[in-house]
């Protein structure tokens, strides 16, 4: 009995303290070190933030370089197939140009009408904000079962602040949750931690919550409200962060939201610098 207990304690101690050969550090010492780093990072001691920011910037750049092969091969095969489809695409584009030419006349009229209607509604005309829109490249898009986020190549140096909304083709995709000097992390709308106030087509207010899957869901809808298919969802802007009326997605037959932009296919995004700066945050 005592021999067995001795065996256990020897094996246990050896597993924790063993060093030598290739092992320059014991498991126990590294556990202590990891705990110290963890608590320093969690409780955000004054000097850890710039250090963490520097480490993040360096690691994100290395990640971007290390991921080049994984990005190159899918892109190369896509380019190749595009090359072979070029004649067909040319015909299709010519037809589209003709169609758009006929629609062009209507656009000017609609733009004026839109401006006038926005003046009546006292909301900001979106194009006024164009000077405050920052184009950023997606550096890291590592998929995780627990976190849905991307890392972009613009940070505090370019004026990015925590909380700023991020869009692609004017569709909302998320907001900045971490800023470093040269990079930032954007929390996507489908992340479990994402919550934003939204308006549905007919004016109903709700909260768009990430579900951890591709499609987020609507919460805090009015009682007995039934979600119907093909309702457009816009940011309501009630939080003062997102531009009111920024399109997000539409409802599907299962009652959740299909985003207009696929969160797994992001390469360039835009950061709206306007709202938070204006409030001096």
């Amino acid at each position: 009995m005592s021999v067995s207990r001795d065996d256990f304690s020897i094996a246990f101690r050896s597993a924790l303290l063993q060093r030598g050969g290739a092992q320059k550090f014991s498991v126990l010492s590294l556990i202590f070190l990891a705990l110290i780093i963890f608590f320093l990072d969690v409780y955000g001691v004054k000097f850890t933030k710039p250090v963490r920011g520097f480490i993040n910037d360096v690691v994100y750049r290395v990640t971007f370089l290390a991921s080049t092969p994984t990005r190159f091969f899918p892109q190369a095969s896509k380019d190749l197939s595009n090359y072979f489809n070029v004649i067909e695409e040319n015909k299709r584009l010519r037809a589209e140009i003709e169609k758009f030419k006929s629609l062009e006349l209507n656009v000017e009229f609609l733009q004026d009408e839109n401006k006038n209607l926005q003046k009546i509604l006292e909301t900001e005309y979106f194009n006024k904000n164009l000077s405050n829109i920052l184009l950023a490249k997606v550096l890291v898009d590592k998929n995780s079962p627990f976190l849905k986020s991307i890392v972009i190549n613009k940070g505090t140096r370019a004026g990015v602040l925590k909380g700023m909304p991020v869009t692609k083709d004017n569709y909302l995709i998320g907001r900045v949750v971490e800023t470093n000097y040269l990079s930032s992390r954007v929390l996507l709308l489908n992340d479990l931690n994402s919550r934003i106030p939204v308006t549905l087509d007919e004016g109903t207010q709700a909260i768009l919550s990430g579900s951890g899957t591709t499609n987020p869901i609507l919460e805090y809808l009015p009682e007995d409200y039934e979600i119907i298919e093909d309702l457009n969802i816009f940011a309501s802007g009630k939080d003062g962060i997102f531009t009111p009326g920024t399109p997000i997605g539409k409802t599907n037959d299962q009652g959740d939201i299909e985003l207009f932009v696929d969160p797994n296919q992001l390469s360039f995004v835009t950061v709206n610098l306007n709202l938070l700066k204006k409030e001096g945050l």
Partner: peptide, 13 residues
Amino acid sequence: DVVMGFPLGISSL
């Protein structure tokens, strides 16, 4: 941890 956005040290532990 840096790449995934977790608190530093948690994956190491």
